[in-house]
Amino acid sequence: MDLRELDRDSTGLCRLNSPVPAVCRKEPCILGVDEAGRGPVLGPMVYAICYCPLSRLADLEALKVADSKTLSESERDRLFVKMQEDGDFVGWALDVLSPNLISTSMLGRVKYNLNSLSHDTATGLVQFALDQGVKVAQVFVDTVGLPDTYQKRLQQRFPGIEVTVKAKADALYPVVSAASICAKVARDQAVKNWHFVEKLQDLDADYGSGYPNDPKTKAWLRKHVEPVFGFPQFVRFSWRTAQSILEKEAEGVMWEDSLTGDQEGPGRITSYFSEGARVRPRLPHRYFQERGLESATTL
């Protein structure tokens, strides 16, 4: 898998895809959606779709694709290569969502939670297949959140397509298993070859599974706290584990939308006049107030 684009910029979103097999533009196709790396506090989350003509589903099953979690890394790699070889009827596409994208989305002024981010990414990939001319007839999705609501939403979004959202879809439907293999291979490769945007020396790569409850991961996070910047962008700042380490071990940072006890409201013009109990005899002219200017009384 060619993740060079991710190496060039690991701060946003990176989309990779196979060529669309010609047959997929002619015949009705079945499409599976799955994700890898949703839980970890480190590295990207990958969403993948995999599709083939309904008429060739048996050939896909013959590859013995299975839920990626039940396969070893080498088995996943081998299966992914096989799918590439079967490029005449199997197609795939995936989005690598950088940890920075996840952090900035989830921590935004308007909170964009991981479920919404996941749903929108999945929807985007299905739309991408449609835009490329894939004749999608059926979509199978491993659920995120409540399957019913998710299914309703997807069905509304793609009225002409038969949508099935189900828990453990990656184990039940070979096309979802295939998608999960694509996602997992991409995620593993991205993590292994992570291109740190920061100029870091002697970074140790021994961060364990990347899951927040892994003691190794926690130790790695604690070791790599930078007091001002927090963590490298490899870390999802929005994870509670990361935030609680920052609270304890990094310098405090206040944003205008930070929630604090003493906050009167965002960006108050007059707030600094009320500091302490001192009342100014006259406020500066509005020219100065509108520009945040006041006469210096201290240096």
Binding site: L200, V228, F229, E251, G252, M254, W255, E256
Partner: peptide, 15 residues
């Protein structure tokens, strides 16, 4: 657009 609550050296050029 935020207040870092301390003044101190910081590896701006690296991070």
């Amino acid at each position: 657009p935020c207040e870092v609550l301390v003044s101190r050296p910081a590896p701006v050029g690296r991070f």
